[in-house]
C-alpha cells in the first residue's frame, strides 16, 4: 500500500483506526510528527493515538488551510481561524488536547485565543457555569473558603 503512495505523502491513522492521506508538508505542521519523520522512526503510516477521526479531520483541515494560504492575505486566514475555532465545548476541548499533544502551534494559539475571549470580562461564577457546568457544586463544597472570597469579589 505504501508503495502506491505519491511521494511526500503520509498516512495518519486516528485512534479509532481511520486513515488520512496528507501531504508531508501539512503533516509536519505538527512538531511531534515532524520529529518522528526527521528521526526516520516513522513508516508511511503514522499512528496518532488519543485523537479520533473526527478531531483528526479537523486538525488536518486547519493545517491544510494554513499551508495553502501562506501567500494569502493574513486577514483571510484570521477569518478562517476565528470561524474554525468557533465550536462546541467538546470539540474545542478535544482540539486543544490534540493540538497540545501533537504540538501544532498555530492551532493551539487560535484555540487558546478563542477560549480566552470566552473568559475575558466574565465573572468567576459565569466562567464556572460555562466551563465546569455540573462540577460547580463539588467545588463549592470542597473549597468553600476560597469561594466566599470570590463571591464577595466578583459576584
Amino acid at each position: 500500500m505504501s508503495s502506491s503512495l505519491e511521494k511526500n505523502m503520509l498516512i495518519l491513522r486516528s485512534s479509532d483506526g481511520e486513515e488520512f492521506i496528507v501531504p508531508e508538508v501539512v503533516a509536519v505542521m505538527s512538531k511531534a510528527i515532524k520529529n518522528m519523520v526527521e528521526d526516520e522512526c516513522a513508516s508511511n503510516t503514522i499512528p496518532v493515538p488519543n485523537v479520533d477521526a473526527n478531531i483528526l479531520a479537523m486538525v488536518i483541515e486547519f493545517c491544510k488551510k494554513h499551508d495553502e494560504s501562506e501567500a494569502e492575505a493574513a486577514s483571510d486566514l484570521k477569518t478562517f481561524d476565528s470561524e474554525f475555532v468557533n465550536r462546541g465545548q467538546e470539540a474545542l476541548y478535544d482540539l486543544i488536547t490534540a493540538a497540545n499533544f501533537r504540538d501544532v502551534k498555530e492551532l493551539l494559539d487560535a484555540l487558546c485565543q478563542n477560549v480566552a475571549e470566552m473568559i475575558k470580562g466574565k465573572s468567576v461564577h459565569h466562567i464556572r457555569i460555562q466551563f465546569l457546568g455540573y462540577q460547580l457544586f463539588e467545588i463549592l463544597t470542597s473549597n468553600f473558603i476560597w469561594n466566599i472570597w470570590c463571591d464577595r469579589d466578583f459576584d
Binding site: G88, Q89, E90, A91, L92, Y93, I96, Q130, F131, Y134
Partner: peptide, 17 residues
C-alpha cells in the same frame, strides 16, 4: 450557541493539560 452547542457531554475543562 457557539460555546454550549454540545450539551450531551460535559467536558472536563478542569483537567485541561
Amino acid at each position: 450557541m457557539d460555546a454550549n452547542g454540545d450539551d450531551d457531554k460535559q467536558v472536563q475543562w478542569s483537567t485541561l493539560p
